[in-house]
């Protein structure tokens, strides 16, 4: 596996918690389709519960989860679509990457006339541009 895999994987879930896009960039062990679907919907509910437990009003859910071996950055769009990346602990400027991925999603998925809302994403152009974005992120990390 690539030594500079700062980003381990990317998930996109729709507003009802269904996984519509999943891409792995080199995590150890196999995650089958069922597991990724379960994890995505589990994340969706944890995100919702975290809003309920907030001690102060207007909480919008988990933005960063710091686990022992990875960080999870989550970005929720205004329409409720959630984007989250699993990356190495301490990886910086993931918010920027997530915003960029959101831009790619609006450009290449939402503007695709053949794309049905809330359905799994199968758009070649999105895949290509996403690969470039994540690659660029890795190069930026290597250049530090």
């Amino acid at each position: 596996m690539a030594a500079a895999a700062a980003v381990y994987s990317l998930y996109i879930i729709n507003k009802s918690g269904g996984l519509i896009f999943y891409k792995d960039y080199g995590s150890a062990g196999r995650m089958d389709t069922n597991d990724s679907l379960r994890l995505a919907s589990l994340w969706h509910s944890m995100h919702a519960i975290s809003q309920q437990l907030s001690p102060v009003p207007s909480c919008s859910g988990i933005e960063l989860l710091q686990a022992d071996t990875f960080d999870l950055h989550c970005f929720q769009s205004l329409t409720g679509t959630k984007f989250f990346v699993v990356c190495e602990p301490g990886t910086q400027h993931m918010e920027g990457l997530l915003k960029h991925i959101y831009e790619l999603y609006t450009d290449f998925v939402l503007k695709n006339p053949f794309y049905e809302m809330e359905m799994p994403i199968r758009c070649e152009l999105f895949d290509i541009n996403l690969a470039q974005a994540v690659q660029k992120d890795r190069v930026a990390l290597l250049g530090r």
Partner: peptide
């Protein structure tokens, strides 16, 4: 709710761990 959140988040992180096979 708090205990449930922690319990489920722990099983989520255990399953998501990208470094263990």
């Amino acid at each position: 709710l708090m205990f449930g959140l922690l319990f489920s988040l722990k099983s989520l992180t255990a399953k998501m761990d990208p470094t263990s096979v």
